[in-house]
Computed example of a mutant assay.
Amino acid sequence: MTSSEPNDRIDHLTRLAEDFFGERVTHVSTPGGTDRASIRVTLESRSVIATLRPNFRRTHLEAYILKILESECDCAPKFMGLRENVLFQSDLGGNRLNTAIWKAGQADRASIAFSAVEAILRIQKAANRVGLRDALPILGANDDWVENLVHAIDTMESISHGRSITLNRAELCQKIVTRPRSFVKWDCRSGNAAVSNSNSVKWFDFEYAGVRHGAEDLAWLIADEAWPINPEVMEKIILDCLPSEDRSAADTYLDYLWLYTSFHCIQRIKLIMKEVVKRGWLSKSRIRKFDDAGVHPEFAYNLCKVGEYAAYRNRETALLARDFADGQRFFLSIMRDGLAARGAIAAE
């Protein structure tokens, strides 16, 4: 992208917003940076989000989902219009979940985490009720996708004793395959939600939504490297939010949640290790501000801690839990080596 392209795109979105709403734009900001698909447009009477994605099909998918959800659920942005492949949606405010929960005290953190989980499940329930489960593409349904997820175990060899490379991968692939039973928003990282003054949570960015098990959305949140709530607390919150009348169903749900979370943690670690080679370690404040990949050793350590908890929950992944424990020591050693003091790891 050339230096003029972001400004050209912003000018284009500004003109479209003025034409669509019939009002003058008084201010434009780029909350996630100029390279992101969405910008905040302040008009004379309101503030809206204008979204122009590189793939117009994803924009139209998101618009379709928001239009259907708006009368069924208040946990997502309102659809405001679509013009020339630009989606206009309601502005949920600038208090992103990833920043809000980090700044909150312990009591408020628990309340916010509960609201985040509850909102995910409410969105899924509403989407399933109105038929989105039958209208959207099935995600992670082909063999290559499942095998890539499971075979990423190889990533752990570079930060551990590599015990998990001996796991029965064919068996694990069979366990990851699941009946498509629920709408999933996908990409439920904490940077993709906003928190109100009353600590209620609303989720945005639905361009990757589809259908799968359903627990994947919670795995995205639990295994968000910047998420400060430990997995034991998250499990209690999830149990409080799941229907209580069928405990065996909840146990089965949790079994799959922790299985999937184990492998999702590896995907995030793999991303961090790739990005640190390209960019070096980043500061935690920058990561939160721009909703960037958590390229900081403390965040990688957090992923290994979550991964250990998740992997121990299934007999088939117990060896993987031990590799996650090794990974914690690996990333702790990076922090203890004094790289932060020498500037190799940016401080907070």
Rank of each mutant, 00 (worst) to 15 (best):
M1R: 12
R9F: 01
L13F: 08
T14C: 05
E18G: 12
G22P: 02
R24H: 06
T26P: 04
T42I: 14
E44T: 14
V48R: 05
I49K: 11
L52M: 09
L52V: 08
P54N: 08
D74L: 08
F79D: 01
G81Y: 02
L82H: 05
R83Y: 06
N85C: 10
W102A: 14
G105D: 08
A113G: 00
V117P: 02
A127L: 05
V130Y: 00
A135R: 13
L136E: 00
A141T: 09
D144M: 10
H151R: 13
T155K: 10
E157T: 15
H161V: 11
R163D: 09
N168T: 10
C173G: 05
K175N: 03
F183H: 00
F183E: 00
V184K: 01
R189K: 10
S190C: 09
A194L: 05
V195Y: 06
S198P: 02
V201N: 01
W203L: 01
D205I: 01
E207G: 02
D217G: 00
D224G: 04
E225Y: 11
W227T: 07
N230S: 13
E232G: 12
D240M: 14
D240K: 14
S244C: 09
D255I: 06
L259K: 05
L271D: 04
L271T: 11
K274Q: 07
V277Y: 06
K278H: 10
G280Q: 04
S285V: 08
R286C: 07
A300D: 05
N302W: 05
N314Q: 13
T317K: 12
F324T: 04
I334Y: 07
M335L: 14
D337R: 15
R342Y: 07
A344N: 11
A346H: 06
